[in-house]
Design a protein around this nucleic acid. Sequence first.
DNA 1: ATAATCTGAATGAATACTCATTCATTTTTT
DNA 2: AAAAAATGAATGAGTATTCATTCAGATTAT
Lengths: 212, 212
Amino acid sequence: MATVASAKSRRTASRETRRRQLIDATLKCIARKGMGNTTLGDVAREAGLSQGIVNLHFESKDNLLTETLRTLANEYREQFDKTLEKSGPDPAGALLALVQMDLKPKLIDRQKLAIWFAFWGEVKSRPTYRKICDEYDRYYDSVITGLCAEVIADGAYANVTPEAAAEALTSMTNGLWLSCLISPREWDRQVAMDAIMSYLSNVFPRHYETTR
Amino acid sequence: MATVASAKSRRTASRETRRRQLIDATLKCIARKGMGNTTLGDVAREAGLSQGIVNLHFESKDNLLTETLRTLANEYREQFDKTLEKSGPDPAGALLALVQMDLKPKLIDRQKLAIWFAFWGEVKSRPTYRKICDEYDRYYDSVITGLCAEVIADGAYANVTPEAAAEALTSMTNGLWLSCLISPREWDRQVAMDAIMSYLSNVFPRHYETTR
DNA sequence: ATAATCTGAATGAATACTCATTCATTTTTT
DNA sequence: AAAAAATGAATGAGTATTCATTCAGATTAT
């Protein structure tokens, strides 16, 4: 019983702990009730804390939401980087690992998608959200374009540019998320994966053998 | 002055006219301020009418928003059907016309996209929105899957199923819309079209000649 | 060791404000 | 004159934010 550092009955916690706790509560509330119907009272209740707690730790609701988006985006980026790292030096393998990541049930469930779309839905009227998303997307785009360029060079493919291939692949995964959100019953991971593989195996045939 | 049915100074209008006017105002407000910050006062002001007007013609805000989504969806469907009709009997041509439609500046500008994403952002917490979107999507999916099946049969393509190709194409256009929303500066219709053509010309090479 | 003091995290009632909805009144049409 | 349409002030429910107060744990003094 020695090294239990944070006793569970502790009434006060460090600033960072509370902020994280509140952000987690916010994510849950947005997934359940949507962005518009999530009140600070909801967030506090979900976190098991008191009414005024959010304004104590974040100064405003606006702030809380922005930080929540940042946290969400960071989490995705960590997954992205981890996937990239684990996949070794082969660019074709890395590309496949990345698109497969986007369909992993653990990472992308309907809860998470609802949260992403909730933020995307406000992008036009909240420039800050747009900027944050753009910043991260720019990075993913550069990585994926780079991988496509390597594959194209390696296979001497003359039928596609790295930019077009990257745009096609990232757009496809984002679009597949929308299908999952709107038709959860019908939506099928296998069909989604088939769609992506139909691209890879036809555009880069010497790198992605069709198993059909 | 006899046959001027709708004089411009007319202060009262038919129910349908007013409803349409209010829905148009709602669309503008959502594009400008976002779903969450659009109030009934905003809508009334945008329409140049009085505070209580929305509740007079729609019974509630909820109702107004649902009807607005239906109108938006109908408008898109009309475009879809018109495009299909105009494109003649060739399935490959129809498919191309449909994906090109999705990138037409007239049809798809950032205003419209913002509205679509605003509704999609609420899909998870508002089952009605989901149902409406699903209903329309099911139709588009069936049409596009059918066209893909025809192209596949005609070209004897063994490398892809109609379902996978349809899913790939519709997902790609939806995903391209997200790019347009998030990176409006960078986003380029030509690159978007290249991405789609990289799919068509590689998966259905005997139907879509690469002009490169 | 014990008591006294301090600190800042947390509370939750009070405040100020927004906004959907209602409705008595006015205006327009028939 | 009666009916229909529209107005816009009033209502009240809901909610972000504030703040005086409480309290657990750390620090200091005895």
